[in-house]
Computed example of a mutant assay.
Amino acid sequence: MKFKVEVRTIILENYDTGILPHMLVSIGCLLFVFHIIGAKISNDCGHAESRRTFHNMMMCFIVLLAAMSIVLIAGGSMCFAHRNFLGDAFKKGLLSSMKLYKENETVKEMIDRTQLEFRCCGSTSYKDWFEVSWINGEDINMEHPDVQSNLKHGNYYGDDVPFSCCRINSSRPCIFHKWLIIILLRHLQTSINEAIEEGDPEGGGDAYCFSQAPCYTIL
């Protein structure tokens, strides 16, 4: 648990694992030792020749085991309470980290990895990305009318999400802001190929996404 949390501290806000992981490991080790001792006592009490020596230890062992059970319940309660604390830290931290998505490569990588691993999108929902300017201005045409209409204080706010929000097993294509770029690049590539094949590399050529598609564009 400590390892899983600490590798994501960059997207957690005001969170500290504290003594909980050490406490749980300690309880586990103690229970392991106690049960070995209990097995020894129980085995020796099963034989008449050794019963007299170990049967008085049985009550002490039961008391110690009951005490350990109380500690174990306390550890479980701490885990339950810690879950809510971790959830709040993750929610606030992810919202803050999303604002750094386009500027900090380390934060971007961690958010993408987290969304892909846990198949999630945003902090509470995918709409959280609509409130964040997460697209770098260098990746889009800032002079385009559609882009201009979504500019606020010089930053672009769109209704799309990063690629890591896409579901791998989805039966439909996942659309995000770079999808349009892929289509345009495909049109440019096919247009260049068509122009070369027609013997006029500097001229225009038919552009398309798929050769069997009914719509063509001259570029």
Rank of each mutant, 00 (worst) to 15 (best):
I36W: 12
I36H: 14
G38D: 05
A39E: 06
A39S: 10
A39Q: 07
K40Q: 12
I41E: 03
D44M: 13
G46P: 06
H47M: 00
H47T: 08
E49I: 14
R52W: 09
H55T: 14
H55Q: 09
N56G: 14
M57L: 13
M58L: 15
C60D: 15
L64M: 07
L65K: 07
M68Y: 07
L72Y: 02
I73Q: 00
G75P: 03
G76C: 09
G76I: 00
G76T: 02
S77Q: 13
C79M: 10
F80W: 12
R83Q: 14
N84C: 04
F85L: 13
A89L: 01
K91C: 08
K91M: 13
K92A: 14
K92P: 02
L94G: 05
S96K: 11
M98F: 05
Y101A: 00
Y101L: 01
V107D: 01
I111L: 10
I111W: 02
D112W: 02
R113I: 00
R113F: 09
L116K: 12
L116C: 09
E117Y: 14
F118I: 12
C121A: 02
C121P: 07
S123L: 06
S123C: 10
T124D: 08
S125L: 00
F130S: 05
V132E: 03
W134E: 01
W134G: 00
I135G: 02
G137N: 13
G137Y: 02
G137V: 04
D139Q: 14
I140V: 10
I140S: 01
H144L: 12
D146L: 12
L151Y: 15
K152E: 15
K152L: 07
H153K: 15
H153V: 00
H153C: 10
Y156E: 03
Y157H: 06
G158E: 01
D159W: 10
D159T: 13
D159H: 15
D160P: 06
V161I: 11
